[in-house]
C-alpha cells in the first residue's frame, strides 16, 4: 500500500461496527481526510425466497422450524439494518471522516466485491454470533480477504491476544512500510511487535520469530504460540495467498490485516 487509504468501505452485512476496528483505522490513516462508507447488502436471493410459497424458517433461538412469514421477516431485516446503521454512525463519530451509509440489493458476493473494488480499504467483521452460532457462513468474506489488496478482517474477541505479529518474508526496504504500519498499531495498542521472518532478526520489531518455511500451519502455530491479537501481512509472491488467506481467516482467532505491497 503505497498511499494511505482515502475511501474505506465497512462491510456491515453480518455484524455491527467494531469500536476497536475503527480505532485501529484511525491509527492507520492518521489525521488524513477520509470517506467512510458503511454497507449493508440485502440478499436478493432472500428477497426472492420471501415470495415463494410453502417455505419454512429455522429459528436458531427457538431451535425449531416454522412457516416463513415474509412480512415479519421484512420487518426484522429493516430493524436489523437500522440497528447496524445506528451503531456504525455512533462508532464512526470517533474518527475524522465523511461518513455515509448504504443499503444495496443484489447477490451478496457480487455486490460486496463490486463495492470493495471501488474502495481503497475494506473493513469486515466476522459474521456475528447468535446464541453461539454464526448467522452466516464466512466464506464470502474470507474470499474478500483473499482477493482485495487492503483488508482488515476483524475477528473476535478483539481484546484477546497480547502481541501484534507481522509477517516479513523479505528484509530491508521491501518490508519497511509494512513494518512501520505494524509498529504504529502496536504502539497504539500498547503491545509488543513481533516479526516473523526466515532470515533472522528484523530491525524495528521488538522480537523476531524465525520460521523455516512459509506455510499456513507454521503461521497459525506462531500466532497461537505468541498469543497474537492481530496478524499483519502482505502478499508473498511465492505463495498461493488467496487460499492461504482464506485458511488463516478460518483457523485463526486473531484479527487479520492485509496490506497491499
Amino acid at each position: 500500500m503505497k498511499q494511505l487509504p482515502k475511501s474505506v468501505l465497512y462491510l456491515l452485512d453480518c455484524g455491527c461496527a467494531d469500536d476497536a476496528a475503527l480505532r485501529l483505522l484511525r491509527v492507520f490513516v492518521g489525521g488524513q481526510e477520509l470517506q467512510l462508507t458503511g454497507l449493508v447488502v440485502e440478499d436478493e436471493d432472500l428477497v426472492r425466497a420471501m415470495r415463494l410459497p410453502g417455505l419454512s424458517e429455522v429459528s436458531i433461538a427457538r431451535l425449531e422450524a416454522g412457516p416463513l412469514q415474509p412480512e415479519r421477516l421484512r420487518k426484522d431485516i429493516l430493524a436489523h439494518t437500522e440497528a447496524v446503521r445506528e451503531r456504525f454512525e455512533k462508532a464512526a463519530r470517533g474518527i475524522s471522516a465523511e461518513v455515509s451509509f448504504q443499503v444495496r440489493r443484489g447477490p451478496v458476493s457480487d455486490v460486496l466485491l463490486e463495492a470493495a473494488h471501488a474502495s481503497d480499504f475494506v473493513v469486515v467483521t466476522r459474521p456475528q454470533l447468535i446464541t453461539g452460532l454464526r448467522a452466516r457462513s464466512a466464506s464470502t468474506f474470507q474470499n474478500l480477504l483473499a482477493q482485495h489488496g487492503n483488508v482488515l478482517f476483524v475477528n473476535e474477541p478483539w481484546q484477546s491476544g497480547s502481541r501484534i505479529v507481522v509477517l516479513c518474508p523479505a528484509s530491508g526496504a521491501d518490508v519497511s512500510p509494512l513494518l512501520a504500519r505494524a509498529r504504529a498499531i502496536a504502539t497504539a495498542e500498547k503491545l509488543p511487535l513481533l516479526a516473523v521472518s526466515h532470515e533472522g532478526d528484523v530491525e524495528g520489531a521488538d522480537a523476531t520469530v524465525v520460521i523455516q518455511n512459509w506455510s499456513e500451519a507454521a503461521i497459525v502455530a506462531v500466532c497461537e504460540a505468541q498469543d497474537a491479537r492481530l496478524l499483519v501481512f502482505s502478499e508473498i509472491d511465492s505463495l498461493d495467498w488467496r487460499t492461504m488467506a482464506t485458511a488463516l481467516a478460518e483457523r485463526l482467532s486473531c484479527s487479520l490485516l492485509r496490506i497491499e505491497a
Binding site: L46, A49, E57, A61, D76
Partner: peptide, 12 residues
Amino acid sequence: AMLPTPNGFVFA
C-alpha cells in the same frame, strides 16, 4: 440455497 436471515435460515 441455504439463506441466512436475522433469526436463522431458510432453504429455497
